[in-house]
Design a binder for these strands. Structure first.
Lengths: 278, 278
DNA sequence: TATAATAATGACTAGACGGTCATTTGTCAA
DNA sequence: TTGACAAATGACCGTCTAGTCATTATTATA
């Protein structure tokens, strides 16, 4: 297991610097100080590695933002959203660099689909945020793309220029811009109709109760004795046999939410239990 | 010469579909119906080809926008700017696709520098536009990045979704957004100081009078007898030995500006003669 | 038609790549 | 100390790549 972790970390460094295609397995193994065979014992292929990286980080990214959004009041919602997004990017800057380099470039089918899937999750999050703050504006789809374009451009700045970067101020500035646009811009370009066109290519991937249970099982096995493990076990019980008060569930979810390996499970469970603080 | 043209067009198609690295010289030559040797007679390497492509199209892109901006009144300036940009993208969609795919990805040093150079030209154009419309706002640098992020995101939409695309409406919508932001957003993130940090990595590439003359010489050789060629000859005379009234120069510039091979020269000369319609 | 000059060919080189597998090394309990 | 099992190795394979160059085909000139 430690080997998989090592390969992930070292490979990510190289991918961020050189890109995925431009980094050879040879290079990765040398940088890890292991043999080529050892690499293929940990991962079936180079592709499997990048898929694992994508899952590992995007799950954290989405669930971080989701948690922040669900636990902010309307006052600070936009700020929290941007702040959480940029914070996660800064913490995992190598991964962010990799994603930016690979985003339009990829011809690996499975990778492309996975990226699109996480893209949609983020889009849904943003749409929910917009509707909550501004209601059912005619320009709401344009607002999604505006917010995403802000994120893209300033993420690029954050990653590729060695600038002293004040995330607080950036989030503030972008919140203001977003609000200004929501309140004053009137001409929609992406109409309901255009949005429908775009939705045609959607990937519908509903995570079923059984799948959630399976993922929980998996995580329970991985974790050693801890509050997180205990909480997961209780939540599993609860899913099979509902009995606790919602406050207890909320507490249990809170217990697991900040553990890197549990963030995704916590996100899935928040959706499953329909849990929101506000 | 026709061979170079053929290779450019066919290779661009493949690059747009598959990316630069993923397209082999073999593939290009087969698609052109020529031999590998013939390819290397036209271009010294695969890299030289992509550099030529970049120059060919970016020169048109920049000079198109520059001409539009310099010849619009303030009323329609933003609209014209966006419209001109998206129109050029749509006309050369294969090239635009290639650029988007390669933009963060490239590790070819010379290519990277060239891309940065054209990036800066665009940035200067946008800054001039902002200052002309809104004066010396504190948020002017943020406005640059906002405009560029609008362009990026909607260009992506235009290129990679098969949506019926109304460029008029898009340009209208984006003009409004830009104006709204310029008038109502107050919090700058990219301050003068940050902008200075970023300028440190600037490439200063001043095109000298001699270089302009050389490029003109080159173009004159390439062109067959035509109004464009005659105009270029007269403009060359004028550079060495100024004698004409500025109206005549303006007319000569107008003669050459729409010929694909002269757009860049026209752009350079507009700057040289300090020519603006307004 | 003969000759010179130019254009075009494609078999070939050298090297890099992802991935495999027979072999070696390390680690236990007995 | 032995034997059994698992972990790790790296030489090797087939395939692909950018780029070269001796050879051939085409064209222009005399």
């Amino acid at each position: 297991m430690a080997k998989k972790q090592l390969i992930m970390e070292k490979a990510l460094e190289l991918f961020a610097k050189q890109g995925f295609e431009a980094t050879s397995v040879q290079q990765i193994t040398e940088y890890c100080g292991i043999s080529k065979g050892a690499f293929y014992l940990a991962y079936k292929s180079k592709d499997e590695l990048i898929l694992a990286l994508l899952d590992h980080f995007m799950e954290q990214y989405i669930s971080n933002i989701d948690y922040t959004v669900k636990n902010s009041d309307n006052e600070s919602l936009l700020f929290s959203f941007y702040h959480s997004a940029f914070q996660t990017v800064q913490e995992h800057s190598n991964f962010a660099k990799l994603i930016i380099k690979e985003q339009a470039q990829t011809f690996n089918g499975e990778l492309f689909i996975k990226m699109q899937y996480y893209d949609q999750l983020l889009e849904q999050l943003i749409l929910a945020l917009i509707e909550r703050l501004f209601g059912d504006k005619a320009t709401k789809y344009d607002l999604i793309y505006t917010i995403r374009s802000f994120m893209n451009v300033y993420t690029g700045l954050l990653l590729f220029h060695n600038i002293p970067f004040d995330i607080e101020r950036l989030s503030q500035a972008l919140s203001e811009k977003t609000t200004v646009l929501a309140e004053h811009a009137t001409i929609p370009f992406i109409t309901e109709e255009v949005a429908m066109f775009m939705r045609e290519y959607r990937i519908e991937k509903e995570v079923s109760k059984e799948e959630v249970l399976e993922i929980m099982e998996q995580k329970i096995k991985e974790l050693e004795e801890s509050v997180e493990k205990e909480s997961l076990l209780l939540l599993k019980e609860e899913m099979i046999n509902p009995s606790y008060h919602s406050a207890i569930i909320a507490g249990l979810l809170e217990n697991i939410r900040s553990h890197p390996h549990c963030k995704w499970v916590a996100y899935l469970l928040r959706n499953y239990f329909g849990y929101e603080k506000n």
